[in-house]
Design a protein around this nucleic acid. Sequence first.
DNA 1: GGCATATAGTTCATAGATATACTAAAAGCG
DNA 2: CGCTTTTAGTATATCTATGAACTATATGCC
Lengths: 184, 184
Amino acid sequence: MTDDAAPVPVEVPDGLDFWSFIELANRRLSTEYGSTHELATQVLLTLNRASNVVTYDLESSIHRPRGLSWSAFRLMFVTWLAGPVESKTAAKLTGMSRAAVSNLTKTLVGGGLMERTPDERDGRSVQLSLTEKGRSEIGEIYREQNEREHAWASVLTEPEQRILVMLLDKLITNRSQFDVRGRN
Amino acid sequence: MTDDAAPVPVEVPDGLDFWSFIELANRRLSTEYGSTHELATQVLLTLNRASNVVTYDLESSIHRPRGLSWSAFRLMFVTWLAGPVESKTAAKLTGMSRAAVSNLTKTLVGGGLMERTPDERDGRSVQLSLTEKGRSEIGEIYREQNEREHAWASVLTEPEQRILVMLLDKLITNRSQFDVRGRN
DNA sequence: GGCATATAGTTCATAGATATACTAAAAGCG
DNA sequence: CGCTTTTAGTATATCTATGAACTATATGCC
């Protein structure tokens, strides 16, 4: 391999896109680069890209038009369902950094959607909760999102959906078998 | 609902985390908020969170220690496998904006990992390719990542892995049935 | 051929996320 | 108690990604 250009023994199709790239990657890795665990790559590449496609769709069709980012939705959703939560808990449940929650909270409080009340017992911490307006907003947003989620999921039969959940659950839950990196 | 605090008929467990939140959400949505399509939410929440967990783990254990972002890895990976590509194609295949590819390319060219050569036929476009150094880097990085991917995927049996891929593939491929938002 | 339109890429302004450093409060411990 | 260490949250600087505006090429059409 002294040439700059990568070898092109496998044809690179013209209509290649974000999704079909997975297939190309799979083919090239197995035929040329002698990937040791080719199926593992396929599984995780597929997982990652499927998630991106769906998330981008939901964000751009539901949340952006209302002026909310995907992160803002997540924070409101978590606060809605897990009740008033400490800021650090919100960070853990949304998968954001504490700093991100802090910044985002400012915006949402400014918009009258959330409230920050100092904790009675612990002077350092803060309880995040939704305002009445925030609660009615998230309820409405969720209903709208849920319709679209349904449109997505309905491509699979109900048993298929359950199997998918089960497999993903197994994938993540058994991660204790090795040393996974998580936030914080 | 005149009280600020959300109702708490379902217990919010203490050890709640990013992953177990899915379960809580599912319970509350079905018991309290009368989610119409509860399973759909569960499927997509699980998909999104599983992807985040794995991606964060790979980025922090493999790529950050080498000074590469997840995006940088994706761009190199795509360029590696899809041969020299136009900048706009790279954007499509990585799922980034054209601006992001443009910025990232500067960094990678600066680090001696990529090359930008003007297209002979089209004076506007640019071909992205890996340098010799870039190609050997991505090869090594991929091998390392592939080992970790294997550790993740091995939690599932091979048939389970194939079913997972199949289900995700079905979920995404049949999206043509409704009007999905994509980048660009 | 010449002019309108579309396309490729970059630049710029902005939003969002992170890590780091900092402040304030709590907890542990002699 | 008082001192050290830990913890919660925030402010700051930096980085990254985006959309929109801009530059330059290319294409289509009369």
